[in-house]
Nucleic acid binder design. Structure first.
Length: 307
DNA sequence: CACCAGGCAAACC
DNA sequence: GGTTTGCATGGT
């Protein structure tokens, strides 16, 4: 099926695609070289679908051309459209964010530089949380390597129109791995346990990630925090990259603290509490300001030394 | 060689 | 309560 979506402007599809390549490997999705096309196998209502999204139009008058081919079942066009709208944050209106901070001393230039960059969420909550756990504490390139190895170990491949697409491992295939399988791929013992035990909780029916969609940020925190390997940062990242929630502040995040130090020209790295206080007036857009500050690290990776 | 990476749990006071 | 330590590895 084919349809179009008109995202609320400003919407900069190419900025969103470029970001995927900066922070590591793109893994299971394919991007065209000019960043105008996205392709991935996406599970929509339990049906695997080939999804292709092309950009037309401009940042101020954006238009997305979408092609969806269900591979192992049937879905309605309305469901497919809703999924893509959610993935690309098309219905979110960021204009009040830009208006409110346009004259802000530190944030004004950051926001204008990334204007139109919206969250591109992960297509699946299990995929999201596993990638986030892998990313705990290690640099993003190493995390990317580990993610790729997990996909090779437990993922699937499917051919569509003569092209081969990888599908991220399911909870079922991940639950069948042994800790030793991941240890051999240079996962730490503990990270191997976190990942496989989480997959087994899902296949055992102890945890239903999809049930999180209609819970509040705080309820999700309470629900996931007791699970081994899932701390506050991991949940905050799930709320951001898995669910696209707009007002999350991962104040302890090392990258955010480095970015705040750069942008505010602080002599020392701010503490979690410093960031929390500074971000009081970022509400209700704390996710987006965090996201843009993270993005600023990719463009000016050196931490300014004021000593 | 030291130290840091978009943390976390367990073991300590 | 809060604070310290080990974890695996790659980049700088």
């Amino acid at each position: 099926m084919n349809f179009t979506i008109s995202p609320k402007p400003p919407f900069d599809f190419q900025k969103m695609m470029k970001r995927l390549t900066v922070t590591g490997k793109t893994h299971v999705l394919k991007l065209s070289y000019d960043f105008t096309q996205y392709e991935k196998i996406v599970r929509i209502e339990h049906v695997f679908c080939y999804v292709k999204v092309n950009t037309n139009g401009s940042v101020e008058k954006p238009l997305l051309s979408c092609e969806v081919i269900p591979l192992d079942g049937e879905i309605s066009e309305a469901k497919a459209k809703m999924k893509i709208q959610q993935l690309f944050s098309t219905e979110l209106d960021l204009s009040s964010l830009y208006d409110h901070f346009s004259d802000h001393e530190q944030l004004g230039s950051v926001l204008s530089r990334f204007k139109g960059l919206k969250l591109l969420t992960e297509t699946d909550l299990f995929e999201a949380i596993i990638k986030i756990i892998i990313g705990q504490q290690v640099n993003l390139t190493f995390a990317g390597t580990l993610t790729e190895r997990l996909i090779k170990l437990a993922g699937k491949e499917v051919g569509v129109g003569g092209d081969v697409f990888q599908i991220f491992p399911s909870p079922e295939s991940t639950a069948k791995l042994t800790y030793e399988d991941l240890r051999q791929m240079q996962f730490s013992q503990r990270k191997a346990e976190y990942i496989i035990d989480l997959a087994r909780m899902i296949t055992d029916g102890q945890l239903d990630l999809e049930a999180l969609w209609n819970k509040s940020d705080e309820e999700i925190l309470q629900k996931l925090l007791p699970i081994r390997g899932i701390g506050k940062w991991t949940i905050e990242c799930l709320l951001i990259f898995g669910m696209g929630r707009p007002d999350i502040l991962p104040a302890a995040d090392i990258g955010l603290r480095n970015a705040v130090r750069n942008v505010w020209k602080l002599q020392e790295k701010p503490t979690e509490e410093d960031v929390r206080l500074l971000a009081e007036d970022w509400q209700p857009w704390r996710t987006y300001i965090t996201y843009y500050l993270w993005e600023s690290l990719n463009q000016t990776p050196e931490v300014v030394d004021h000593t």
